[in-house]
Every structure is written in C-alpha cells, then in structure tokens.
Design a protein around this nucleic acid. Structure first.
Length: 294
DNA sequence: GACGGATTCCGCA
DNA sequence: TGCGGAATCCGTC
C-alpha cells in the first residue's frame, strides 16, 4: 500500500520494516531447533544463503541487538530470569499511573475500557469494526478498530492467507459490521509499533470485548511491565482465582489484541513458552525484540 | 453436564 | 535436565 514512501533505513530506526521479519523469523526457527547449540552467525547465514554481514545488519536493525545477544535473550535461562526478577509485579503496578516506574517509560501507554456483559452477549451486534492489513515488525498485521478504540490486532504469516486471518478475528464478534478501511487503521500501527511514540501524552485507547472472565485476565496482562514476564498461575492468583491457571491459559489464548495486551509475557512455570495463538516463533520474536528495547 | 485446555506436578531416565 | 503421563480445575457451549 505504501510502496511510494520509502522508509529510511538507518541503524537507529526503531520502526523496522516488515520485510526484516521474514529473515528474523527464519533465524529464530533455526536456533530453536537446538538453542543450546547457539550456532554462529556464519553458520546461520550459510544456512539461509545470506552473507553474514547482511544478516548482521538486518538483525541489528530489527532487534536492536546483535544476533548473539538476541540468541541469549530467547533461551530458557533468560526466560526464567524474567520470571523471577521481580516477586509480584502484578500487585503494585497501576495502569492508570502508567509512567510512574522507569520500566514503563519505554512501554506502550494504554488506557482500556471493557464492553459491558450485554454488549458481549450481542456478539458485536450494533458495532462497526473497521479493519486493515499493515506491515509490522512481526509480519503482516491485521488491525481492527471501533469508535471506542483498538479492538483487535492479529498477525498473519503469509500475504495469501489474509482471508483466514480475517475470519479468525471476525468470528469472535460475528454480528459486527465489518468495513475495510486501511486509512482508519493505519495510525494505530505506527502508534503501537513505533517505540518513539509509546510514551506520548495521549494514551492508546483500547476496548476489550470478551466474557467477564476473559476481560479480568486481559486486564491482568496489561499490568505486566515491559521486559518482565509472569506465569499462568501468577495471573490466576492476580485475578483472585489461584487454582484457575489452566482456564487462564485458555483465556489468554483468546486475547484479541495481541502485542498490546501482552499475552506473549505469559510463560509456563518452568519458563517455557508453552503456546501462542500466532505461533511460538512469533512469541520468541516479540520477547527477543522487547529485550532489545529494554 | 460434558469437554478439553497457551497448566502443573511427579516420577523416571 | 528433559520428557511423558495423570491429576485437577475451570470457563464455555
């Protein structure tokens, strides 16, 4: 869509182009086969048929980290450290306070509201949902907005599968009225993925449309500070149902606003990345990318 | 009611 | 450690 406006490619560009992710994704898949081996840059480049120099450049532009540092950021050990860094991160962080803690300085500034139970029962009836596809640092992104704010954010693995990804989202609110409108959704993409705009004065408006339980879970996720992680049982405890960790997992899996509601920061108790609706590779990518911004 | 999880725990190489 | 199986709990349809 935006082929006419070239993005300047400088090392300091914190809004990486969508194409970089295609390379990064392959790298992550390679190192995940056996992450203990930590293959050399040369080996990875050879495997992908790229020059090491070029690969290094793309990688650093995308991640803000050298490939080596990135490899370390996606190991199990590192994930465990994220979990234990801070004892109970969920209890003290107030979303409304937003910018109070230094770690949140680099985080996306968000306010949210939830749809009423009645509106949820209507399954989107009476709601106009504008949507569009845009390049993002994690592949093609599908954005859905209502007049109350951002309602959906999904990732697509391939151009050709747009319909499938659209339906994956649209069936969550089957009675909504869907209108393709990339002009309406484009501003959200840059607001969400351009780290320079995360802490701007005006918070990103988000609307959570889900069951009562799901909304409580998603609100809990919104409180996880940037660069931290929690376990499913942490979330269960936070919403006052300490034994519901499995149900929490299911609810997290239905988070409609990926990345913004940071469901990628929920890990298994062992630190393992136990699942992600849009693929474990993407979950690793997001966590590693965040490591480069922290 | 039944179903099935983006869990967890335990036991065994 | 890592892996597999069972226990168990809960939201959803």
């Amino acid at each position: 869509m935006n082929a006419l406006s070239p993005v300047p490619e400088t090392a300091t560009d914190i809004t990486p182009s969508g194409e970089d992710y295609a390379i990064v994704k392959q790298v992550i898949e390679l190192i995940t086969i056996d992450y203990r081996e930590q293959p050399s840059l040369d080996a990875i480049a050879a495997e992908l048929g790229q020059s090491p120099t070029q690969l290094q450049k793309v990688f650093t532009r995308w991640a803000g980290l050298s490939p080596k540092a990135f490899l370390q950021a996606v190991t199990l050990d590192h994930a465990k450290r994220l979990l234990h860094q801070e004892e109970l991160p969920l209890l003290e962080t107030s979303l409304e306070v937003g910018l109070s803690g230094p770690s949140r300085l680099h985080d996306l500034f968000v306010t949210h509201e939830a749809m009423s139970p009645g509106e949820w029962k209507a399954k989107g009836g009476g709601l106009t949902m504008r949507y569009g596809f845009h390049p993002s640092p994690f592949g093609l992104a599908l954005v859905m907005v209502t007049d109350r704010g951002l309602a959906g954010l999904a990732f697509a693995d391939d151009e050709g599968g747009r319909d499938a990804y659209f339906h994956d989202m649209a069936r969550r609110w089957p009675n909504a009225h869907y209108v393709q409108d990339s002009d309406a959704t484009a501003p959200y993409i840059s607001r969400v993925f351009d780290a320079r705009r995360w802490a701007c004065e005006e918070p990103l408006r988000v609307v959570l449309i889900g069951s009562d339980f799901q909304i409580r879970v998603w609100q809990s996720l919104l409180k996880i500070p940037f660069g931290k992680a929690v376990t499913y049982s942490d979330v269960a405890r936070d919403i006052g149902q300490p034994t519901a960790s499995r149900a929490v997992g299911a609810a997290i899996g239905r988070n409609p606003i990926s990345f913004v509601v940071p469901c990628h920061r929920a890990l298994g108790k062992s630190g393992a990345l136990t699942g992600y609706h849009w693929g474990l590779t993407r979950k690793r990518a997001i966590l590693g990318w965040e490591a480069g911004k922290g």
